[in-house]
Design a protein around this nucleic acid. Sequence first.
DNA 1: TGACATGACTAACGAGATTAGTTACAATAA
DNA 2: TTATTGTAACTAATCTCGTTAGTCATGTCA
Lengths: 190, 190
Amino acid sequence: MGRKVGITLKDVVGAAATIADRDGLEAASLSAVADGLGIKTPSMYNHVAGLAGLRREMALYAAVELTEVFSTAASSAPPDQAVRQIADAYRRFAKEHPGLYSALSPAPRPGEDDELYEAMAAPVLILAEALASLGVAADDAIHLLRGLRATLHGFVDLETNGGFGMPVDIDTSFSRAVDVMVSGLLSQTG
Amino acid sequence: MGRKVGITLKDVVGAAATIADRDGLEAASLSAVADGLGIKTPSMYNHVAGLAGLRREMALYAAVELTEVFSTAASSAPPDQAVRQIADAYRRFAKEHPGLYSALSPAPRPGEDDELYEAMAAPVLILAEALASLGVAADDAIHLLRGLRATLHGFVDLETNGGFGMPVDIDTSFSRAVDVMVSGLLSQTG
DNA sequence: TGACATGACTAACGAGATTAGTTACAATAA
DNA sequence: TTATTGTAACTAATCTCGTTAGTCATGTCA
């Protein structure tokens, strides 16, 4: 007993992410993750602050990953295509990592967890920059950013939770929704 | 013992909704609802099929309520204002009944629960009619309906889960998002 | 070499969901 | 009126999880 197995926080979050992406966030319980790592449930407390702590680490990891995904998408395209590239990357991330994606909600209240708050703000800032490069007026920026975020999040959330019943091509629906939102933004701001 | 208290399914769902709207869907556990009704947890099984059954009844109730809210909103305005009225009513419902609203997700897979499926389709149909009255082409109807649903759902979900950090007027953001989506729809379809 | 921090462990408890079996009451049929 | 039956409450017991407390082996470092 007491054998050190050499488990790192990365291992813990990785195992949790794997379970969550396969079976849903709820399935990534302390006991399931411990099982996956080959340790007993109470030993999880040597790595994370209980279930809430595990969820927090998953959210942090998800935010960092999403930031990188956004960053790659934004820089791999001409500025006028950045928003669309980010939108596609967002949806791809959510579909490939549904468990991690759902770990991003709810967001911490301001002042509750600054590190996580910053990490979750990062991808939003990248999207904001991409919008700015399209010529969105600074005055309207926050409103339009919110609208676009709502459309992106709402779409992938409905999609992964079975909200779209009709067997009509969903890729097309997404592309159209992003087009409507982006072109709508521009026509409003001139 | 064995006293009949005269609890109806309506009572059960009502008590669950009250708890869920106040403390979140998770808080509406079988034991918490039983407590609220003054009965023991196992007696809940005389009214609903376990926790999953309770959630299902809550979703059904929420869908019926939302349908009525949509119906009222759609008929209390000229056709060209119906979509906006529905959008506002949608957000109001989600903010007044956050627990019930979150009970609407996930949706049942087709064939899994026809009654619930139909009930949840009803408000979507009302929104579809309102869109049709704006002159959206039938060909595009499904894509555009999905886009609008995504924006509405994403907005209220982000709002209630603390996703909007900035202290900038959220009513305005919502109104702008709906405007963008609706006018975008129209310009795309000609 | 010995003290200490780390990270595993066992034991124990509480909350919640669930199942099985029991019982009181009300309505209805003989 | 009385016997029967269904409803809806109950207790008892079990399982899974999360959590805390306390223990112990191992590697590091003075």
